[in-house]
């Protein structure tokens, strides 16, 4: 009886993360269909492995870790980076809903394109922190790397994004220090 109730609570806790998992999957450069497939694989795996999850630890981090591992496995197995498939037209494919949001004078489409040019490991960190708003520690746990690695990937990723957006895709070499 109690077990059933906590089972429902667990499912609910997992379900609450679905929108965030989808957003992250989409931002990784997947189109809507394959992003949802990835999330679905992640949920199935999470539900079947729930007995491995330690109560009291971070459920969100655990789910993102599963998603991350699946994504890495799939892109590695396919022998390509996801953006090769998702961005045949150079950006509109990955922008998802492409809601421009409030007008901040920000060239968001360029950001999507620049993001697709980042190495996978930098893109993941930039997204987990900048979009999913994880703490540095949580991102490190999620990716299974030291916090110092997260910080250096974040710094490199953001700087590369800035250069790409400054230059309209051409690498910029100023400000070398």
């Amino acid at each position: 009886m109690r077990g059933e109730r906590s089972g429902v609570d667990r499912r609910q806790a997992i379900v609450e993360q679905i929108p965030h998992l989808r957003r992250y999957a989409r931002a990784l450069g997947r189109d809507a269909g394959t992003a949802d497939d990835l999330v679905q694989d992640c949920l199935e795996r999470a539900l079947s492995r729930f007995h491995l999850f330690r109560a009291g630890t971070n459920l969100r981090g655990w789910l993102f870790t599963i998603l991350h591992n699946l994504h890495v496995n799939q892109t590695r197995r396919a022998g390509r980076r996801p953006d090769d498939a998702a961005l045949p037209d150079g950006g509109t494919g990955m922008a998802g809903p492409a809601s421009e949001g409030p007008d901040r004078g920000l060239p968001v489409r360029d950001l999507g394109r620049a993001l697709a040019k980042l190495p996978d490991d930098q893109r993941e960190v930039v997204l987990l922190i900048g979009l999913e708003e994880m703490s540095y520690k949580e991102a490190a746990d999620t990716l299974g790397v030291p916090i110092g690695t997260v910080m250096s990937r974040l710094a490199r990723g953001r700087e590369r994004l800035r250069q790409l957006m400054d230059s309209g895709d051409a690498p910029v070499l100023r400000r070398v220090k």
Partner: peptide, 13 residues
């Protein structure tokens, strides 16, 4: 960049 990421992808939520 952070604001732009939200503008691009929050719609998915």
């Amino acid at each position: 960049q952070n604001a732009g990421l939200h503008a691009l992808y929050d719609g998915v939520l």
